[in-house]
Design a protein around this nucleic acid. Structure first.
Length: 760
DNA sequence: GTGCCTCGAGTTCC
DNA sequence: CTCGAGGCAC
């Protein structure tokens, strides 16, 4: 049913619905039907709306009101039941102006109390200072961001990866809980909430689907997701979707000052707000509310998967800010995961890009939390044996064997894991699982470094599994992101003896080889002239590549997205990086020698004589290499860089010094033009500066000061050095202030600092 | 040395 | 999404 509440100014000049005669009503419904059909045609098919959204909505509302008063007159082809022509292809992308974040999780009372304690610590509040939270059920659906401009709904976007979602505006318009217009809203207002389906609606829908011979849905969440992501909005319109608002994104004017007040305002604007939302003044109250909600869970009529706690005061929320992917001011207290028992049929070993051997459980299919699970991760060797990484027993030390009855759950309601074993049902003939010590893919030795949880194949690029996984990483979204090459194509290209894409450089020679009739991509299944041409073009587009993506794409261990960015910024170019690493190599080897020596000492202490002697000899051999000062300087510069420690530095050095790997890098670089990272000139006066805080800060805590400074592009360090640009000294500053004075470094107090960053 | 906090790497199903 | 572990602050 369409909404009939809300402002109806556009229809004011027409006869009020209450005053219509039946004849007038019939004529009007005909007229509205025609007008709406025309508007739909113009909007969807020709992409050139004839009337504004507001006018369109007014027509629809009037149509719905008339139908509500004269149900018998409702046309068979009523516009209420349809939404117009389907867009020609998939959804367009929407970049969220403010990222849609996920929440960190709490699994027990202890985590919730830690959450409260952490917030108090960050804000510098004592345990007794008042602090208000809101607690509300966490709806198990899918998040949606609704953008209103001038009070009119102009865009609805799914969460996607948090930054980029899909434009599902036409579909969202069909959801009755979502107002098309809101009165008195700021110029720009993004409302965020959860789309879900009630149990009753879900069952009715599945019954209808089954009757019509259509596929049924595994659970309400899948049904809601599938319904919202229909390309044809008329299908979405026929699905009973609902919506709870719980938050917001961009808002052009400051209209809220507490979370609770914001919800009340959203409610006043016509959004459905979950009735089980309360304010709590301490963790005990939060936990009590959690218990209440858990009790009611089965009778709510819709799925929830926990309770969300948020700091109520939005000023405090602002001060708390965000970690990399989650806000500090909110947490999701999850209900215990659903469990299921099934038989473990076999254990397979997968080999990852770094050579890591990962055991995967093949299970007799079983339904867990509404999804059929047939595979589950077994983490690593120790986990199967019943030991944690620290060597302490887990599952009471019970090991996992093929043939066992095992308990499965979906961690975070997503990743299936084996949690427990039923020893009473263990068949008599089972044997403890023997973890392979050679790589199942290439036969090379698979060894486990001391203190490491994983066993790794030592085959390097000889190992086809590692080579393929490395290539998959190379073409992945965060690296080269080559359109037309995904995991499947990589497999095919690698194993095809003519295409022979065995390392990244081979991707960039594909077209040339194709031209010379060496490969003939278009002869392959699923590849025609056009798709081949498109692929070559997509590859060409990536010959110019941001330096940090290149670095990430190389797949060097410990060099992930963030470290790659740090390195790119530190060195600026591949040449500079390569040269620095070549220079630093002797120092890197000395570093390793020192580590080995320390290891030898420890081993000797443990009376493992033979191994100790070997390690010692190795260390001595390496220590003999003299370390030129230039090498030491280059090495120090590397490990002093932000976020780069000795482990990463050594891994990088090894990769660059390894002839096979370096050869592959050099061959690849011959085809590329890396783009230097932006030397971004941020507006902030502290951008790019290195700042040190010392003494007592009175208006903010240390953590807060650091987070804010970093958000403005400053680098915060703990100690004063020649590289420090600015010292912020509170009362009680001691040696750091003296040192800064010595070095002639600018020193200001907290107020001056706040004035400096004010407005940024 | 200990204890966060983040990052990296590996994972399943639709 | 989770675990393990690296990096860094205390």
């Amino acid at each position: 049913m369409a909404k009939t509440t809300g402002q109806n100014a556009e229809a004011a000049v027409e006869i009020p619905v209450d005053a219509l005669t039946e004849t007038q009503a019939r004529a009007e419904l005909d007229r509205l039907s025609e007008a709406l059909a025309r508007a739909n045609q113009a909007y969807h098919a020709e992409d050139a709306p004839e009337i504004s959204d507001a006018e369109y909505d007014a027509l629809k509302r009037r149509n719905a009101s008339i139908e509500a008063r004269f149900p018998a007159l409702k046309r068979a082809d009523s516009p209420s039941d349809q939404v117009g022509a389907a867009p020609s292809e998939g959804f367009s992308k929407v970049t969220h102006t403010l990222r849609m974040l996920s929440l960190s999780n709490a699994f027990d009372d202890h985590d919730v109390r830690d959450f409260d304690r952490g917030i108090r610590k960050y804000l510098g509040l004592s345990e007794t200072d008042p602090l208000v939270y809101t607690a509300e059920p966490k709806i198990d659906g899918l998040s949606l961001s609704l953008r209103y401009e001038g009070g009119a709904l102009v865009q609805a976007a799914t969460r996607g990866d948090g930054s980029i979602g899909e434009n599902v505006t036409a579909n969202a318009r069909t959801i009755a809980d979502i107002p098309h217009r809101i009165a008195g809203a700021p110029g720009v207002l993004e409302v965020r909430g959860e789309v879900y389906m009630s149990h009753a609606d879900f069952e009715a829908l599945n019954a209808r689907q089954a009757e019509a011979g259509q596929k049924t849905f595994a659970n309400p969440r899948n049904a809601a997701a599938g319904s919202l992501r229909q390309l044809d909005a008329t299908i979405t319109a026929a699905r009973p979707l609902k919506f709870f608002a719980y938050g917001w994104g961009e808002v052009s004017a400051p209209v809220f000052d507490t979370q609770n007040g914001a919800l009340a305002q959203l409610g006043a604007w016509g959004f459905a707000i979950n009735p089980l939302t309360v304010r709590c003044t301490d963790p005990d109250a939060m936990l009590a509310h959690y218990a209440r909600i858990e009790d009611q869970r089965a009778t709510l009529g819709y799925d929830i998967d926990g309770v969300v706690y948020k700091v109520d005061d939005l000023n405090l929320q602002r001060r708390l800010g965000f970690r990399s992917t989650t806000p500090r001011w909110a947490i999701a207290h999850k209900f215990p995961a659903e469990l299921a028992w099934t038989r473990l049929e076999s254990i397979d070993i997968q080999v990852g890009r770094t050579g890591a051997l990962s055991p995967v459980a093949r299970l007799q299919p079983v339904t867990v939390g509404g999804v059929v699970v047939s595979n589950a991760t077994l983490h690593n060797e120790d986990y199967i044996a019943g030991r944690g990484a620290d060597g302490r027993p887990i599952r009471d030390g019970k090991d996992i064997r093929v043939g066992d009855w095992v308990q499965v759950y979906r961690a975070g309601d997503v990743i299936p894991k084996v949690a427990d074993v039923d020893l009473s049902k263990r068949p008599a003939d089972t044997m403890p699982y023997v973890f392979p010590t050679t790589c199942p893919e290439c036969g090379s030795a698979a060894i486990r470094e001391e203190g490491d949880a994983v066993r790794r194949c030592t085959g390097g690029l000889i190992c086809p599994a590692q080579a393929v996984e490395k290539l998959k990483h190379f073409v992945s979204r965060a690296a080269f992101d080559i359109e037309g090459i995904g995991a499947k194509q990589v497999e095919m290209f690698y194993h095809d003896d003519q295409l022979a894409v065995r390392e990244p450089a081979d991707i960039f020679t594909l077209e040339a080889r194709d031209r010379q009739n060496l490969t003939r991509l278009s002869n392959r299944d699923g590849w025609g002239e056009t798709s081949a041409k498109n692929l070559f073009q997509a590859i060409d587009e990536k010959r110019e590549i941001p330096f940090e993506r290149l670095l990430f794409g190389l797949g060097i261990r410990h060099v992930g997205e963030v470290a790659a960015k740090d390195l790119a910024r530190h060195y600026g170019s591949w040449e500079a990086l390569a040269q620095a690493l070549d220079t630093a190599r002797p120092a890197a080897l000395a570093e390793r020698a020192a580590e080995r020596a320390a290891e030898a000492e420890r081993a000797a202490a443990a009376k493992e004589d033979r191994r100790a002697r070997i390690a010692e000899a190795r260390a001595a051999a390496l220590a003999d290499c003299a370390v030129p000062p230039a090498a030491q300087a280059a090495w120090s510069d590397l490990v002093a860089a932000d976020g780069i420690g000795p482990v990463l530095a050594l891994s990088l050095s090894d990769a660059m010094a390894n002839p096979e790997e370096r050869g592959a890098f050099d061959r690849l670089l011959a085809h590329l033009t890396p783009i230097p990272p932006e030397t971004r000139a941020s507006d902030s006066p502290v951008a790019g500066k290195t700042v040190v805080f010392t003494g007592t800060l009175e208006k903010m805590t240390r953590a807060e000061a650091k987070a804010r400074a970093e958000a403005l592009g400053a680098k915060v360090s703990g100690s004063v050095s020649a590289r420090t640009d600015l010292l912020v000294a509170g009362p009680g500053a001691g040696s750091k202030a003296a040192k800064a004075a010595d070095l002639g470094i600018e020193t200001i107090d907290e107020d001056a600092w706040l004035a400096l960053i004010d407005g940024a």
